[in-house]
Computed example of a mutant assay.
Amino acid sequence: MGGGTGARRAVRAAAATLALAGGAVVAAPPAGACACGGLVDGPAYDTSVSQEAAVLQWDGTTETMLIELDALSNAPEVGLILPTPAPAEVALADPQVFRELDDLTQPRAVATDHRWWPELGFGTAGSDGAGAPAGVAVLDEVRLGPLDVTTLGATDPAALGAWLTERGFQLPEEIQTALAPYVAEGWSFVAARLAPEEATAFDGTLQPLRVTFPSGSLVYPMRMSAVADETQSTRTYVLADHRVDRVDATAEAQEPTVRFAGRVDPGSVSSDELAALLASGSFVTSHEQVFTEPGTQIVSDFTFSPAAADVAYTPTVAVVADKRIGPFFAGPVLAFAGVLALAVLVIWSGRRRRAPAPALAPRPARA
């Protein structure tokens, strides 16, 4: 990644919002390929996404995706192109959804040992749709806060590139190539960008996006990440009636890690949006997967199927619990108490030995 300190300052949330529109992970400067699609910027800038999280729900006919990306960029404008199986509706999402799900699915600490003494030493290691080129149809446009979001239909990957170029963005050849299968399959696309007048507003506070579209199955677009040059890290939360498994070719080649599986009471969360999602499907299944070689490891979109049983899983992490008496480690306190008790006993015993024998009263004479 390039750019100075200002480059890393706030695009994190701006790109997070843009990326959220498609649930992705990005990694190739000057623009990135990601699960959702591609982040695009100008030819002289660097945009990179290291981690992505997505909340997924499907009611049998309609899929809802909430997506959040961890991104850095030095570009004044960043745009996102996201493939969806059908034209999508886009809205802002509540970032608290991700914060709460992250907390709920954190590994639970289990004490496997106890520490009675403190460790000694010196530390531990530790837009406007008019004029769209042929092959692109502008289906909808909406302004969401500082973002311009457009829903597109496309029959030609090159036309998508031309559409973005007209708006000042460059579509790298590898991303355009990755778009081709989605175009061939008749998918639609969401294009989001920071509005030009908001180009200086990268302050780390932009929200994720909620993308809703008709779909015949639960799918998470991931194929475009295969063109990434850097390690891709993904986390998905599927909210459904039952536990789900990943059943795509990418999962078959490299099994994802189950982060969490279990029911979550909608009344236990503070986010209204998350509570509404849980009311429609309270079993949360979270998978994580890291791709160190995206080009060979990512071979498909992510797809899901009901698991054989609703087996709950809460990860645990072994910890060493401190034994304390008040604010102090129990070992030194007990040792000091023992030494003190021993000292008192020794002093008491010594004084007893040195004390003069008591004088005996003379016996009275016999008559």
Rank of each mutant, 00 (worst) to 15 (best):
A199V: 00
T177G: 11
F213R: 08
L152A: 02
I175V: 11
V211H: 04
P214N: 04
E197D: 15
A178P: 05
P196R: 11
A159N: 03
V149C: 06
T212S: 14
T231E: 13
S217Q: 14
L239N: 01
R259H: 12
A162I: 01
R235Q: 15
L160A: 02
T205R: 15
V211A: 09
L206I: 02
F169Y: 15
T212C: 04
A249Q: 13
W187E: 06
P196H: 05
F169P: 01
G216Q: 08
A192S: 14
T212M: 01
R263G: 07
A228G: 14
R246P: 02
R243T: 13
T155N: 03
D229N: 10
D241I: 01
T250N: 08
L209A: 11
P181K: 05
A251K: 06
V149Y: 00
S233P: 00
T231A: 10
A180M: 05
E166F: 00
A184E: 15
T150E: 01
L152P: 04
E230L: 14
S188P: 04
S217M: 06
V238G: 07
T257L: 12
A240L: 04
V183G: 13
D245T: 11
L209G: 08
P157R: 03
E173S: 09
V219W: 00
A199G: 03
S225V: 09
T155C: 04
A154F: 02
E185H: 11
P208L: 05
A240E: 10
G186T: 12
E230K: 10
A178N: 08
W163H: 12
V264L: 09
P172S: 05
R246G: 03
P208E: 08
G161W: 01
E166A: 15
D203R: 12
F169H: 10
L152T: 06
Y220C: 10
V227W: 06
T200L: 14
A228E: 15
V264M: 09
P181C: 07
F189S: 02
T236D: 12
T177S: 07
R246K: 06
L160F: 02
Q254W: 08
E185P: 03
L164Y: 05
L239T: 08
P196F: 02
G186F: 05
R223F: 09
A253Y: 02
G186R: 09
A251C: 13
D156E: 12
Q232V: 14
Q254N: 04
P196Q: 07
Q232R: 09
V211C: 09
A240Y: 01
P221W: 05
Q207T: 13
T150Y: 00
Y220D: 12
E197L: 03
T205H: 09
S217K: 11
F213Q: 02
T231D: 04
A178K: 03
G186W: 12
L218T: 08
V244R: 00
P214Y: 07
R210F: 00
V149D: 00
P221D: 03
A201E: 01
R243V: 07
T212D: 10
A191W: 13
A251T: 14
V190K: 00
V244S: 04
Q207Y: 07
A180T: 14
T165R: 15
L160N: 04
T151F: 02
V244W: 00
L239K: 07
A180K: 07
V190W: 05
P256T: 12
